[in-house]
């Protein structure tokens, strides 16, 4: 039997979130003695990485009809492979690709699904997976009762274990029909790490007073190799782009390091960030609620503290 894992690529490279899904599949396969079969739509360059994280085989689906992101067709392609392999477990990342594809696949496969898993399946009594609920304020253990199963893996939540597999590649042609969605324009942020996958995030709020003051935040992020984020009012006032808004109604993230500058720590903000491994809070108000969720804190003026931090990291990097 095999476990199927869908991998997304950008310019032929497998996304980090997809490699985590591969590792999740491989660690699940290890305990049940199964093979890990990765599926991509189009060519993959980074075969070594797929092997390193545990893929035994890669099936590259070639289909002339998928030249843009077509979740309905990709789900169909995955389902074809699932049938060919006789598999009953499919893993995807809970990134924006997985979120679009997995629900469709679940109908195709008639599979029960857990999205946003933060732990490996527990097979001691059925098939149980842990996921975050209530926007990071709690966890739920959910059992999948059906024969066919789908799990999507929360980015940045699984330890990637290293395997030393060599991945065999096969090309498969699948006729998927015509796409019903016509993509007419695409804006991909070129260099930045996408926020949901970033391991470090520097975030700022209304305490920064205005958009003109964000240079120091960007400098700190750049020196740390971090992505930038913001609180909701900051995005609402158009000081920062909407995709940077984190929290209950924005993006939920779980980086290793979250630095919050001039953010009060409202419950809706915390809901999107409180699963970060280490939280640093910089705020003038020592009563700011955020300090209760912080690992490290500085009570001080961002305009004085942050430039000094930038210099300190620069020295470290030098």
């Amino acid at each position: 039997m095999s476990i199927i894992v869908y991998v997304s690529t950008k310019g032929g490279d497998v996304l980090k979130s997809s490699l985590e899904a591969v590792s999740y599949a491989a660690q699940t396969a290890e305990t049940s003695n199964q093979e890990v079969v990765a599926i991509s739509v189009g060519k993959v360059n980074s075969m070594d990485e797929l092997g390193k994280y545990g893929a035994n085989r890669l099936i590259q689906v070639q289909s002339s009809s998928i030249s843009s992101f077509q979740p309905n067709l990709i789900a169909k392609a995955i389902h074809e492979i699932v049938k060919m392999e006789g598999s009953n477990l499919c893993i995807l990342s809970h990134d924006l690709n997985g979120k679009a594809i997995a629900p469709i696949l679940s109908v195709e496969m008639n599979a029960g699904m857990v999205t946003g898993a933060v732990g490996l399946p527990d097979n001691s009594d059925g098939f149980m997976v842990r996921k975050g609920v209530f926007s990071g304020k709690a966890f739920a253990n959910i059992k999948i009762l059906s024969e066919n199963k789908i799990v999507t893996v929360m980015p940045n939540s699984i330890e990637k274990k290293e395997f030393k597999n060599t991945t065999n590649v096969e090309d498969v042609d699948i006729e998927l029909g015509t796409p019903r969605i016509t993509v007419i324009d695409q804006k991909i942020a070129s260099t930045d790490v996408p926020l949901p996958e970033a391991e470090k995030v520097v975030s700022a709020g209304r305490g920064l007073k205005g958009p003109e003051n964000w240079q120091m935040v960007e400098d700190l992020a750049k020196e740390l190799g971090a992505a930038t984020a913001c609180s909701r009012p900051v995005a609402d006032m158009d000081w920062r782009p909407h995709h940077e808004h984190v929290g209950q109604t924005g993006v939920a993230i779980r980086p290793n390091l979250y630095i919050a500058i001039g953010i009060s720590g409202a419950i809706q903000h915390l809901a999107g960030v409180n699963q970060s491994k280490v939280i640093v809070v910089i705020n003038t108000d020592k009563e700011a609620p955020f300090f209760k969720s912080a690992d490290y804190g500085i009570v001080g003026d961002a305009f004085e503290v942050v430039p000094k931090l930038v210099e300190a990291v620069k020295r470290l990097n030098a």
Partner: peptide, 20 residues
């Protein structure tokens, strides 16, 4: 029903904040 919620857990409480 294809899935069933078996139970919930609250995340472990954060330790004290260390001030710099």
């Amino acid at each position: 029903y294809m899935t069933e919620i078996v139970g919930y857990e609250l995340p472990p409480a954060k330790g004290e904040c260390r001030f710099v």
